[in-house]
């Protein structure tokens, strides 16, 4: 019996979680987790004194701490790291080295670069427990439908694909503003989701070329286009931007071409166009999209349930650190091509 089994036996069926970093994503996961049956949000760790002071007044049965090490004594089952990307590496290392919890969820991306990502994979392998990175698009019903059809070779032999990730987050940002840079660049923040989807769909990709388009300040990573090669001469193109108008809700999508037809998939729908001209379309509504607690999109709840059930059943979750580290690898290859460190 491993350490995780012992811990689960001690806590019975209640999985006790802490969230580190109470920004937009931290708050979202905190709410969903606390609403799930058999899960208790035990503590929140955030370094902002203002947020801690206010949170202490508004949330009465959750502990607020300013230091990760103060979570050590709580006997947690899992920790969510939802801080800005540059802090993921140090925090994850601390969670493992201090044995704060055996199971770890890290919001995407796994780390700031591929070297750190590989180190976290090794640490996770030694430490055991469940580990997962928050690429929640894998839990979307539309992308799952697309994956299923690709698995059944519905499109036949694949020749090419186009992938996009667009948002309006910085569409109106003034020239010279550094606010976009503070988010770590569009590849990690937005593009990582669609890179993960492409890796999930096509297994193996290698960057061939890349171009940067800066909007706010020269050299800032606001929009990137890049090309990849996949298995059996599959050619892929990615277009990623957070400066486009009319994408107030971020949008992710892929169009895949094969010798038996084409498929277009987005957050909202899957469209299959067979080479004989027949067309079929599925909306979210057609694919069974109800969840226990709906906040944001249903995939967030599905993702959290997957992590919790993996803990309870002591099985691997996906995308684990090893799988997710391949996104960091692709991002590093793209940045290498456009000379961004």
């Amino acid at each position: 019996m491993n350490e995780c089994d012992v811990q689960m036996r001690e806590v019975g069926r209640t999985v006790r979680i802490a969230v580190v970093g109470i920004g937009k994503m931290g708050l979202l996961h905190a709410c969903i987790l606390n609403a799930l049956p058999g899960v208790k949000l035990e503590a929140v760790c955030d370094k902002s004194a203002l947020i801690r002071r206010l949170s202490n007044k508004v949330l009465h049965d959750i502990q607020f701490v300013d230091d990760l090490y103060r979570l050590t004594a709580l006997g947690l089952d899992g920790v969510y790291i939802t801080t800005p990307i540059p802090s993921h590496f140090a925090l994850a290392k601390a969670v493992y080295s201090e044995k704060i919890a055996p199971n770890l969820f890290i919001e995407k991306t796994l780390a700031s670069n591929y070297t750190q990502a590989k180190e976290l994979c090794e640490l996770a392998s030694v430490s055991g427990g469940v580990n997962i990175v928050g690429y929640m698009k894998r839990f979307s019903v539309t992308f799952n439908k697309a994956k299923e059809m690709l698995g059944q070779a519905t499109l036949g032999r694949l020749s090419s694909f186009q992938a996009h990730a667009y948002s309006s987050d910085f569409a109106d940002v003034r020239k010279g503003s550094t606010s976009a840079g503070a988010r770590g660049g569009v590849l990690s923040d937005l593009g990582s989701h669609v890179i993960d989807l492409a890796l999930w769909f096509f297994q193996d990709l290698k960057v061939e070329s890349a171009r940067l388009k800066s909007s706010s300040v020269p050299g800032s990573e606001d929009a990137v286009e890049f090309e990849v090669m996949g298995p059996e001469s599959l050619e892929g193109n990615f277009d990623v931007s957070w400066c486009l108008k009319e994408y107030h809700v971020p949008e992710f999508g892929l169009t895949v071409h094969g010798d038996k037809g084409n498929m277009t998939v987005s957050d909202d729908e899957v469209i299959l166009e067979a080479s004989d001209g027949k067309m079929k379309k599925w909306y979210r509504h057609d694919l069974g999209d109800n969840v226990e607690f709906l906040l944001g999109e249903p995939e967030y709840c599905q993702e959290d349930k997957h992590f919790v059930s993996s803990i309870l059943e002591n099985r691997k979750s996906q995308p684990d650190f090893v799988t997710a580290s391949r996104v960091d690898e692709i991002i590093e290859q793209v940045r290498g091509r456009i000379n961004i460190k």
Binding site: G23, K24, S48, I51, S168, F170
Partner: peptide, 18 residues
């Protein structure tokens, strides 16, 4: 919500939004 989430994004998170 969309306006406030966008404001938080552009002003550096929840503290910036406040």
């Amino acid at each position: 919500a969309y306006e406030y989430v966008r404001m938080a994004t552009q002003s550096g998170g929840i503290s910036g939004l406040a």
